[in-house]
């Protein structure tokens, strides 16, 4: 804000305390990841990158990373398609009842993941989707929809409805209007939604614990097991890589938004 009053010392210290509170637990994994010990600890005699080497040389870690990536990509595709169509549909109909649809789409955010996971477990059992790539991708895709609905609805709120009228009036079909007028205008919103949906799947654990066991072993699942079983510092190394990857995605989102303005 320009021209506002500068923050007082109390406000400043509270703000910094909050920032530290948010960041410190995350940054603690950085020194841990370069420890020279064999267990999760701070470095004692020096810095060592052997846990990173270990991680990148381990087939089981790389397999998990790969699996997580493909699941995240597939579920992002599902979430973006369904969420974008839903947001556009609600926007075009524009009646009071569409508010209900939009609220319904946000349910995965509101309902505790564990409740949802129990339901999925029962249901996927009968559908033979347990511990399968498709099952996890579907579950992550559906729970990623809210992020896309929110970002695309926000982008549509700024869209001048007369542009759609103009396109239709000039003879454009609904499909042409969607492709040439609406989608280019809301593309940044879709991209934001896609990034959030990707991150959502990338670090989702609760659902995976319920609906996957051996065949599907995503990265968060592997970290979880690692912490429970052997306290290997490779976990800290993978956590650092995860942070770097997520920050890169968020930076991409920021760059896309900046380009829009």
């Amino acid at each position: 804000m320009n021209g506002g009053y500068p923050a007082g010392p109390l406000a400043r210290s509270i703000a910094w305390a909050t920032v530290l509170y948010l960041l410190l637990p995350i940054t603690i994994v950085i020194p841990v990841s370069v420890t020279d010990q064999r267990y999760l600890s701070l470095p004692e005699h020096g810095i060592s990158f052997r846990h990173y080497a270990n991680l990148l040389g381990s087939e089981s870690w790389l397999a998990s990373i790969q699996q997580s990536f493909w699941i995240a990509l597939g579920s992002t595709l599902i979430a973006v398609t369904a969420g974008t169509l839903c947001a556009i549909g609600c926007w075009r109909i524009g009646r009071r009842s569409t508010e209900l649809v939009r609220a319904l789409m946000l349910l995965p955010l509101i309902i505790p993941a564990i409740v949802y996971a129990i339901g999925l477990y029962r249901w996927f059992g009968t559908l033979d989707l347990l511990d399968r790539f498709l099952g996890v991708t579907l579950a992550h895709g559906v729970t990623g929809i809210p992020y896309v609905v929110i970002t695309v609805s926000t982008a549509l709120a700024a869209f001048d409805p007369r542009l759609e009228q103009a396109a239709r009036g000039m003879g454009a079909s609904l499909g042409q209007t969607l492709r040439w007028v609406i989608l280019p205008r809301i593309a940044p919103g879709i991209a934001s939604g896609a990034i959030f949906a990707f991150i959502h799947s990338w670090d989702e654990l609760v659902l995976v614990l319920f609906i996957a066991s051996r065949n599907v072993f995503t990265l968060p699942r592997k970290i979880w097991d690692g912490i429970n079983e052997n306290l290997d510092p490779s976990m800290a190394a993978v956590a650092v890589l995860l942070i770097v990857f997520t920050v890169a995605l968020l930076a991409l989102d920021g760059a896309l938004r900046a380009r829009r303005q």
């Binding site: 001048d160 007369r162 542009l163 009228q165 103009a166 396109a167 239709r168 009036g169 000039m170 003879g171 454009a172 079909s173 007028v181 280019p184 205008r185």
Partner: peptide, 18 residues
Amino acid sequence: PERRDFGMVFQGYALFPH
């Protein structure tokens, strides 16, 4: 509307900004 064959100048013009 798309089958009626009219040109229209909208209030505020409604030009496609992109």
